[in-house]
Design a protein around this nucleic acid. Structure first.
Length: 317
DNA sequence: AATGAAGGCAACCGCAGAAGG
DNA sequence: GCCTTCTGCGGTTGCCTTCAT
């Protein structure tokens, strides 16, 4: 295209905007509209390039900009649209009134992308990563957590949970342990499934994943985790959608139960675990079966509480 | 309390496409 | 049809704040 950068002109100010500059730009646009961005700075008395003015206006000064944290609905929308559109931030922004593409891009890069990576998903494809070693730290962390909690056997704990305040606490701990066990098994299952079509190295990795998944290294990872009064359903990562080519991918549709279990129930969102103390334990899925990814107010993201630095996880310890 | 690391965000850079002469 | 200008977009950088040691 051969166009010289607009900010090459010497003497034009760069960097953060001052309140005075903001005021000048705001007043000029409110009075005259922005018109040509190229000529605006001179007409508005600003020592900035037009591009800088346009960015300042569109990303900060525009009156319809919504500021503050992204809501869970907005997070869900971004994830969903990104899975379809990729890094088309402006296209995504059109579906989020009051949010700018820059803001969405920043939010993605600083929050959502990291979460997907930590969960073992490729942030670009929204599919499980096939390289085992990328997910290994997460498996080890979960296994370590599980071992720390190993003393609190879910079955025996729940046997003592019948009455009294202490019983309620034990029930909560048992539910949490049960949930953690399920997470670990899910992660290993995902890795094993991807390794099944991969290299011999991947197969070995899958075996290691299975060993990590097994309590104290002896549990059969394919067997359901038993709990008092019933069995924990075999859970999968929330994507659970397997296409005809055998690939898995995350699904963000509002009607998709992100915590779906194989037996048709759903994994209880962690924020609901405390409620387990008030509800009869034993059925890990039915207690909060109505809580889905799309409808549950507690968590718009798949496995958002998956990470050791999460308050929920720290609550374990 | 001091210091370094990490996180978050605003702003800049450069490319690409549209529009106009 | 070609060239120049303008605008929009996505990637990246750098500064400021917060957190951890």
């Amino acid at each position: 295209m051969g166009r010289s950068p607009c900010c090459d002109e010497s003497g034009l100010k760069k960097g953060p905007w001052t309140p005075e500059e903001d005021e000048k730009l705001l007043q000029y646009i409110q009075k005259n509209g922005h018109g040509s961005w190229r000529t605006l700075p001179r007409l508005a008395g600003l020592n900035r390039c037009g591009k800088s003015c346009r960015l300042r206006w569109t990303n900060y000064l525009r009156p319809d900009i919504k500021r503050g944290k992204f809501s869970q609905e907005e997070e869900q929308t971004i994830l969903h649209l990104h899975s379809i559109l990729g890094n088309k931030w402006s296209a995504i922004a059109t579906h989020l009134p009051g949010r700018t593409d820059n803001e969405i891009k920043n939010f993605w890069n600083t929050h959502l992308k990291k979460r997907l990576i930590q969960m073992g998903f490729d942030p670009m494809t929204h599919r499980p990563r096939t390289d085992f070693f990328a997910a290994l730290p997460q498996l080890i962390a979960l296994a370590a957590l599980r071992d720390q909690l190993g003393a609190a056997d879910p079955a025996s704990a729940q046997l003592h949970a019948g009455a009294g305040g202490a019983g309620v606490d034990v029930t909560i701990q048992a539910a949490k342990l049960q949930y953690l066990q399920c997470l670990l098994q899910s992660a290993a299952t995902t890795i094993a499934s991807t390794a099944a079509v991969g290299s011999a190295l991947d197969a070995e990795a899958a075996a290691l994943a299975g060993a990590l998944c097994s309590p104290q290294g002896t549990h059969d990872s394919t067997a359901p985790v038993s709990a008092a009064g019933g069995q924990l359903p075999s859970c999968t990562f929330p994507e659970a959608a397997v296409s005809s080519d055998g690939n898995q991918s995350l699904s963000y549709g509002a009607d998709v139960d992100m915590f779906a279990c194989h037996d048709g129930g759903s994994l209880p969102p962690l924020t609901d675990l405390s409620d387990a103390a008030n509800n009869p334990p034993g059925d890990g899925c039915s207690a909060t079966a109505s809580s889905s990814f799309g409808g549950g107010a507690s968590s718009p993201l798949p496995w958002p509480e998956f990470f050791p630095d999460d308050p929920f996880i720290t609550d374990f310890l």
